[in-house]
Design a protein around this nucleic acid. Structure first.
Length: 152
DNA sequence: GCCAACGTTGGC
DNA sequence: GCCAACGTTGGC
């Protein structure tokens, strides 16, 4: 069992959009993020993070409902995620399916994460961190989960 | 909207 | 293989 974090700009895809049903997490075009997705297993949990919005922060929990498989949008010339290097034999990019699990009663904001002891090493909080898919340690998961459930 | 930080591309 | 130029990300 591993823990993850998915970043999204709500103007592009929000947690409310995810509530509508399981979603193919397509369009990830970063090798490190792809490798993390390839390490995901069905039933793994993740935090869902809203960037470039107000408030910025973690809004809830998602579950991996399908482990990594080829991201077919890379093969689709009409897709904004098309990658001309991708072929059916070598799709290059992978995606997972994620589903809504629960929404926090309040956003655990980036500011709150930054001041919470024990989260100093969290990938999300490192300077210049841009990975849209990241691992979360079980210790970090616990701390954040406690923060979220302590909120009214 | 700005712009620093980052990853990728491509000429050499 | 180097690295400048470029496009993108994301906090502010």
């Amino acid at each position: 069992m591993a823990y993850w974090l998915f970043k999204s700009e709500p103007s592009a895809f929000s947690f409310a959009d995810l509530e509508a049903g399981p979603t193919e997490w397509s369009g990830v075009r970063n090798y490190q993020a792809r490798n993390y997705m390839m390490a995901m297993q069905t039933w793994d949990l993740g935090y869902f993070y809203h960037s470039r919005t107000e408030p910025i922060g973690i809004v809830g929990i998602v579950m991996i409902v399908r482990s990594a498989y080829p991201d077919y949008t890379a093969l689709d010339p009409t897709s904004q995620y098309h990658d001309p290097r991708a072929t059916p034999q070598k799709p290059i990019w992978q995606m997972v399916d994620i589903a809504f699990k629960m929404a926090f009663s309040q956003v655990v904001t980036l500011g709150r994460l930054r001041v919470t002891p024990g989260l100093e090493g969290m990938a999300l909080l490192q300077k210049g961190s841009r990975l849209s898919v990241q691992p979360v340690t079980s210790g970090e998961w616990e701390i954040i989960h406690r923060l979220a459930t302590a909120l009214p």
